[in-house]
Structure formats: structure tokens, C-alpha cells
Design a protein around this nucleic acid. Structure first.
Lengths: 111, 111
DNA sequence: ACCATGTGCAATCCTAGGGTTGCACATGGT
DNA sequence: ACCATGTGCAACCCTAGGATTGCACATGGT
């Protein structure tokens, strides 16, 4: 399960891919060819990026006639966000524990 | 503000960096030298990664004598998580709007 | 003063992956 | 049947960045 979050992070790390997601969120649905026209890269580059996003579960594509239309998948992104926030709280708990230890050590010093 | 989230995503995209964060969350505080002993890479590699994490605001280092001790910064991670979740809800809203449009179009077809 | 330990910096190596080109195949319109 | 449009695949180029090595400098202990 953890590897899914990893895939999402890797997918989102790329500027072009984030742009693609923006475009898709904007248009609702679009093909690789159409998307490439709005970007400074070729259709094939877009296809590759969409493949990565798809592997991360952030977009899905459906064939319509001779074209393939892609759309965003908000649930997955929400899921990833949730994962990160859980990590954050885990870190906080850890730091709080450390701090408590340090304070008890101080008390020992004074004794 | 958006560029900060970007930095966090790029920082988290790297497996070794995520491992570093795990180690730091575990130990509370540690030096680059110490951390490198728990990883299959050299101290310098660790130093570079810590620099990236620091730039993203995910860790901070303080000098203690001749060593530099690093610790995680949960607030930043929480912030990033929040940013992602907002993006997710924005996407959802967009998709809902599209869906509504499609349905009204259907009604037009029947007419 | 000397040595062990830790950090900082610079040059270098090497691969992952972002991007391109070229061409074959599929689908829809006329 | 023909052509325009769109996708799929494979080979290739090129740079960013992950990792290493080597050495100089700083700090603490004895």
C-alpha cells in the first residue's frame, strides 16, 4: 500500500505532469493529441506522462472511437493527501516523545 | 506558495530521502555521518539529500560542537498534505460540474 | 601539540528518465 | 476506396541529478 503513495509522489514530482493534471482538471476530459497542443512537448511525451499518471492512479483513460480520452481521479489524490497527513502526525508524536524525554533528563541533571 | 508544495513533492519523490525521513522520525535527531551508516550510501550523498529536504522545509539542522544534527519538521509536511487535499477537492468540483453539463446535454438530445 | 572524528567543497562518473523522430496500424468521414 | 486524423511502438539523444572519491578545514579529547 505504501508503494502506491510512492508512485503518486513520483508522478507529482514532474512539472509537465502537474501541468497535464491542471489541464485535465480544467477540461474534464481530453486526448493526448489535444493536450500536447497546449504544451511545449510532443504527443509522445504526453503519452508517456499520462502512462505514469495512470500507473499512480491519478488519471484514467477510456477509448472513444479512434481517440483515448483521459480524466483525473480525485479520490486517489485525496487518498495520497491523507497518507501524507498521517505521516505528519506520526512525526509530531515522535518529536513530542523526544521532547518529553529531554525534559525528564533535565530533571535528572538537577537532582 | 505553490512552488513550496512543488519542492516538497520533488523532495519526497526520492526513495533514499524518504528513508532518511523515516530514520530521522525514528531517532528524533541525527548527524549525516550517523545516518549514512544506516544506509547503503556515503555521507556526502546523505548530505546532499538533507540539503534538498532542508530546502523543501522538511528537515532542519543545528550545529552542536563539531557535528550537525538534523530533525524532521512535521508542520511542513502537514502543510503539503493540506495543499494536496485542496487540489483533490478542486478536481472533484470540476468533475461534478462536467457531469452536470453532460446530463443537461442529454436532456437537449431527447428534446 | 597531536590525533580522531566530523563537516565542507569540488571534480567526476553514470544511469534514469524526459524528450524527440520515424513509421506502422486503426478508425471515421466522404 | 481513399485520405485525414489519432494511436502505438521502438530506437535514439541528452541532460539532471544521485552517488562517489579525494582533500582541506574545524572541533573536541588527551
Amino acid at each position: 500500500m505504501r508503494s502506491l503513495l510512492d508512485a503518486v509522489l513520483v508522478a507529482l514530482a514532474e512539472p509537465t505532469r502537474r501541468q497535464l493534471l491542471d489541464l485535465l482538471a480544467d477540461r474534464g476530459e481530453a486526448s493526448a493529441s489535444t493536450l500536447s497542443q497546449a504544451l511545449p512537448v510532443t504527443r509522445q511525451a504526453v503519452v508517456k506522462h499520462l502512462a505514469v499518471l495512470d500507473a499512480a492512479g491519478l488519471v484514467s483513460g477510456r477509448r472513444v472511437g479512434r481517440e483515448v480520452l483521459y480524466r483525473t481521479r480525485p479520490e486517489r489524490l485525496a487518498q495520497a493527501a491523507h497518507g501524507l497527513s498521517e505521516l505528519a502526525t506520526a512525526w509530531e508524536a515522535r518529536l513530542a516523545a523526544i521532547k518529553a524525554l529531554a525534559e525528564s533528563a533535565e530533571r535528572d541533571d538537577r537532582a
